[in-house]
Design a protein around this nucleic acid. Structure first.
Length: 561
RNA sequence: CCCGGCGUGGAGCAGAGGUUAGCUCGCCAGGCUCAUAACCUGGAGGUCGUAGGUUCGAAUCCUACCGCCGGAACCA
């Protein structure tokens, strides 16, 4: 395993709040991975920030009658608060148009663009596009509506990218009576010049690179190779917008144009790394240790909608630029659907009000149960559904009953019968030794699953140890042993406390808040929480802090019983 | 139409050629009392979408079909 890691989580677009789907897709798995790497003693930087440029923000601002900067600032703050509330442990949370980050970001993005330009990987072309004379701007296909141009459909409210009635792809220039979604004005056809990345030139290198990625999720590799097979079209890397990074070319045709938001967004990973390292006392170029040194591994966590950008376009950009290394891994989760009681499973939709917002969630619940649930149902290979009922159910029957209770019953027992001190080890039998051996085994399995990006399995292995602990306890019955031999009873409790000590380490990537509570009860120093110390034994005689509940019951009917 | 994914006990998922198909939850019965009515044991429940085929042997490979969900690259 490499020693240096640069881990990124997709930059959220700063024109909306974050919901459970965002978290399940990229941020929670990324955070688990990073927390594990830190505990394993690796040099890791966890990079994220808001994606602040682009047409959608300009349009949100236009609609709300505020400036793009106001939209960005509002949602950047909201999103960052959601991440903090859930314990997502970024080393830096920047923003492509956020104070303290913009200057560096714009400079690196423009350098990047110029390098690719000078190397001849862009083709400059003039094409026809639809223009809204009232808003005085070119319109993305999505913002044009008119009559579907398929004769057998003719739906009047088709959009410029797709007809909602017949489902087919629309050529916006063929729409009947095209109007602007923004202003309702009839749109004009105007010519405009843009710079297109010659993706076709990277098809072979991309194919070769992707073919070697045997440890990637099949969905990512298959989808990407499929796209290559169909041929990668040239793709415009500039836009007619005002909200973005100016195209850095000394060319009259470039005047008033900005970089395509998907060109500069992934560069945000680089520019935020640079800012982070400079702030921690280094030079702005220190980012190269993570981005250009082959001793470092780059791992991107994204949602399924980002695959095309992270597995094809971004690597092509990196190849074109020439001095960066390519991502070692792109981890993509599918989308999370939602299943409300009595309703069909459906997509998370802002407009239909089916999103569960993180800010709202955190007003009602603790973060760990959501981290647990979203990992347990993680859409790693297929779409899965968030169900509010299932969330409560799993919290009560798994987190509380299996894990929380195991910790609580042992700590309580220790306080009740051993004055709160770790009992002395008497004679250990095979069952005791097997239980202790399992601590190391499970720590290893969790590590292996996390390193393989199987977070759902990793969580399962962690829970297995808690379940094994409960089983062991019931076999030993210290509450009976106590009446025969305090030494035997103490030996049992000692073993259980060792299990809890291991749990404190291996639950941390998933349940950092609860792990802190356990560490406090066991008086574990930060150094003792490293992965390599996971199965190191607590000394007999150590005085524990008072027992504290790790998780609360959430269903009223179970809580009351 | 084409391309991709999926279809495994009541629910949610594992398993991708080889012992009696696993796991979590739920359900039923029993045990225990340290513990947040938590924990432990046992049980019921599956012809692994359908039909063919390959193989000594198939949820697992191949073909066809049916059903569901996506097609994403000016929605970031």
């Amino acid at each position: 395993m490499a020693n240096r890691f640069l881990v990124t989580a997709a930059l959220p677009y700063s024109n909306g709040r974050l919901h459970v789907g965002h978290m399940a897709g990229a941020y929670i798995p990324a955070d688990i991975y990073v927390r594990y790497l830190r505990a394993a003693g690796r040099d890791v930087k966890f990079i994220c920030g808001s994606d602040d440029n682009g047409g959608a923000i300009e349009i949100s601002a236009f609609k709300e009658g505020v400036t793009p900067a106001e939209i960005v600032s509002k949602y950047h703050t909201s999103q960052e608060a959601s991440f903090r509330g859930l314990g997502i442990s970024f080393d830096v949370y920047g923003g492509t148009h956020t104070l303290g980050y913009t200057t560096r970001h714009n400079q690196i993005s423009q350098d990047f663009f110029k390098t690719i330009h000078d190397k001849g990987y862009f083709s400059k072309r003039t094409d026809k596009q639809l223009y809204d004379p009232e808003a005085k701007r070119f319109l993305a296909d999505r913002y044009v509506t008119g009559k579907c141009h398929y004769p057998d459909c003719g739906y009047e409210k088709a959009y410029g990218d797709q007809c909602e009635n017949c489902g087919r792809t629309i050529d916006p220039l063929l729409l009947g009576n095209p109007r602007s979604v923004l202003t309702g004005a009839s749109v004009e056809v105007r010519e405009t010049t843009h710079w297109y990345l010659k993706l076709a030139q990277f098809q072979e290198p991309l194919k070769e690179w992707l073919s070697k990625k045997t440890n990637w999720r099949p969905s990512v590799v298959n989808f990407s190779l499929g796209q290559i097979k169909e041929g990668l079209p040239e793709r415009s890397m500039t836009r007619d917008l005002s909200w973005g990074i100016p195209v850095p070319l000394d060319d009259p045709d470039a005047a008033g144009k900005v970089l395509y938001v998907w060109f500069d967004a992934p560069i945000g990973y680089v520019s935020f790394t640079s800012t982070l390292l400079e702030r921690s006392g280094g030079s702005p170029n220190d980012y190269e240790r993570y981005w250009k040194d082959s001793d470092s591994k780059i791992v991107h966590f994204i949602g399924e909608d980002n695959i095309v950008f992270h597995a094809l376009i971004w690597p092509a950009m990196l190849m074109a630029e020439g001095t960066f290394q390519l991502p070692d891994q792109v981890v993509a989760n599918s989308f999370l659907n939602i299943k409300f009681p009595g309703a069909e499973e459906e997509k998370i939709s802002k407009s239909r009000g089916t999103a569960i917002w993180i800010e709202d969630f955190l007003n009602e619940y603790d973060p760990d149960p959501l981290r647990y649930y979203l990992t347990a149902i993680a859409p790693e290979t297929a779409r899965t559904a968030y169900s509010p009922e299932d969330f409560l159910e799993r919290n009560d029957s798994e987190l509380v009953a299996a894990l929380g209770n195991f910790v609580n019953r042992n700590i309580s027992f220790t306080h009740k019968y051993f004055e709160g001190k770790v009992p002395a080890v008497g004679e250990r039998d095979d069952v005791d030794r097997a239980m202790l051996a399992e601590c190391q085994t499970q720590a290893d399995k969790v590590a292996e699953e996390i390193e393989g990006y199987h977070f759902k399995n990793a969580l399962g292995e962690m829970m297995k140890l808690a379940r094994a602990g409960n089983l062991y306890l019931d076999q030993k019955k210290p509450w009976s042993q106590r009446k025969e031999s305090m030494e035997a009873c103490g030996t049992t409790i000692n073993v259980c406390l060792q299990v809890i000590r291991t749990l404190a380490v291996i639950m941390e990537p998933f349940l950092p808040f609860a792990a802190d509570k356990v560490a406090t009860m066991l008086k574990l120093e930060p150094a003792a929480r490293g992965w390599s110390n996971a199965a190191q034994e607590l000394p007999a005689g150590l005085e524990l802090a008072p027992a504290e509940m790790l998780f609360k019951k959430l269903r009223e009917e179970t809580a009351k019983k």
